[in-house]
Amino acid sequence: MMEVVNFVINSLIFPGLLFASLVGLLYVGIDRKVTGHMQHRIGPPIWQEYLDMGKLLSKEDITPGPAQSLVFNTVPLIALGAIVAVMLFLPITSAQPALTSVADLIVIIYMLNIPAICIMLGGYSSGSPFGASGAGRYVVQLLSYEFVFILAIIAVVARVGSLSLGTVVGYQVQQGWLVLDWRLLPAAIAALIAAQGKLLRVPFDIPEAESEIVHGALTEYSGPKLAIWRLAYDIETIVVAGLLAALFFGGPTAYVIGGTQIPGVVDFLVKTLAIVLFTTTLRNIMARLRIDQALKFYWSFAALLAIISLVLVLAVP
C-alpha cells in the first residue's frame, strides 16, 4: 500500500508532474527574461510562462479537419508522460532517484526520445506541409544529435563502469566531478552541444525555425494541446539539464553551511539553472544553421569530441 502511495506522490507531485512543471516553467521564464536583457530589452516577466500556459489552457480546443486522428490528439500526452517519467529516474534530492532500475541510463535515453518521436508523429499527422517538413527536419536533427549524446554518455559509463545513474553520482561524490576529469571534458562539451540540439535552441532550432516553416511540427496545434506540448518542452529543459548535471557536474549534493543542512534539491536547482543559462547564452550569440550544416557539425566536430573522450577513457586508465 505504502509503495503505491509513494509512487503516486512521486509521479504526480515530487519529483514528478507538479514539481517538474513548476520548475520547468520557471526556468524557461528565467531563460526568456535573461534573453531579453541580453538583447538589451526588458523582456517578459519571469512568470510569463505560467501566464502563457494559463492562456493556452483556457482556449478552445481546435483540431483542424485534415488532422483529425487519434495520433494527432494523443501524442502530446504521450510526450508529456514520457518526459515526466524520466524525471522519476533522475537523482534530484540525493544520489538515489525516485525509481531505480539496473540500467536506468538506457531507460532514460529511450524515454528522452519518445517526445521527439511524438513531435514527428504529430507533425506528420497534422496534414500541413509545414508540419511535415518540420517533422522531416526533426528526423534529420535527431539522427545528428542523438549519436553524439549517446557517445558522450557511453564515455561516462565506461569511466564509471556502471549503467546506473545513482552509481555515477555516487562515483562523483568520491572522485570529484567528471567534467573536471580531463579525459571526459570533451565528452562534456559534446553533451552540452547535443543538449542544445535536443532542446531545439539556436543554432539548432531548425525543426521549428519560425521564419522558414512557421512552427514546424507544432504548426497546427493550438489551445490546450499546444499547452501540453509547451509543458513537455519546458520539463524537457529541466530533465536534460538535470541529466547533464548528474552525468558531469556531480549531481545533487547536500551541503552543510554554517550548521544548516541544505538539501540536495537546492544543489540540483542551482546546477540545472546554470546549465540552462549556459544554453541561453549560446542561443543568443549565434544564427540558426541550415539542417545540412547542423548535420555536418554534429557528425564531424561534436562526434569527434565524444569519440576522443571515449578513446581516452578506454585507453588511459
Partner: peptide
Amino acid sequence: MPRILSQVLKNLLRKPATV
C-alpha cells in the same frame, strides 16, 4: 561569435533600451 558574446554580456549589465 566572441564579438557578439561580449556585446551580449555587456547588455546584461546595462539598463535596457526599452521602456
